[in-house]
């Protein structure tokens, strides 16, 4: 026997009709309530039908509410949605307030299956700049360079080395010496 029904489904969140951006559309298309006319477990359902049902149906002409009397059966609800999902729910020993609350919930639901979300966000445009590739943002000159390349291999030298500093100091000293010699020669003339 498979265990698939024992675990919660997993998936990604989706919103029907662009989150109802243009107009609201009730996602439930049919609610069926099955109940018994005589049993005590259907008492709340019978109360709901007597007092609240007519108003509820008049206020919500977008979907149909079916009532199916079934002899000696436990009362339950079946809600069918535009996305093809179907929900069963038991109303066994529920009272009137509970039933009107649950029926209202079924009306306002989007029909998304109850599942564990793998990601909490969803977008229809995953990336504007396009998917990454190892060749993205690479220097185009790499296409024509031959490897191994000495210039690409060498470490970036930000500061001069001690040897370079020494050579620079030496050159500076030589320049100063030559200038001093010139000025001396001019004085002697």
């Amino acid at each position: 026997m498979s265990k698939t029904h024992l675990y919660l489904r997993t998936g990604f969140p989706r919103a029907p009709l662009a989150n109802g951006l243009g107009r609201y559309m009730c996602q439930v298309k049919r609610i069926t309530i099955k109940f018994c006319k005589s049993h005590g477990s259907s008492r709340g359902v019978r109360d709901f039908i007597e007092t609240d049902m007519i108003d509820f149906v008049k206020q919500n002409p977008e979907f149909v509410l079916y009532l199916k009397p079934r002899r000696h059966h436990s009362p339950h609800l079946i809600a069918e949605y535009l996305n093809g999902e179907k929900f069963h729910m038991s109303f066994h020993n529920f009272n009137r307030e509970e039933i009107s609350k649950w029926v209202n919930l079924m009306k306002t639901r989007a029909g998304a299956p109850i599942m564990a979300y793998r990601k909490l966000g969803h977008t229809d445009n995953p990336s504007i700049q396009g998917v990454w590739s190892p060749f993205a943002n690479q220097d185009t000159s790499l296409n024509v360079t031959s490897f191994p390349n000495e210039k690409l291999s060498r470490k970036f030298q930000t500061e001069p080395t001690a040897t370079e500093l020494l050579l620079e100091m030496f050159k500076k000293q030589q320049l100063e010496d030559s200038e001093a010699n010139e000025s001396k020669e001019e004085e002697s003339k």
Binding site: F147, R154, F156
Partner: peptide
């Protein structure tokens, strides 16, 4: 060698 498209920089001069 003909597969190579990138060179890693050395860590020290």
């Amino acid at each position: 060698l003909k597969n190579v498209t990138s060179q890693l920089r050395q860590l020290r001069p």
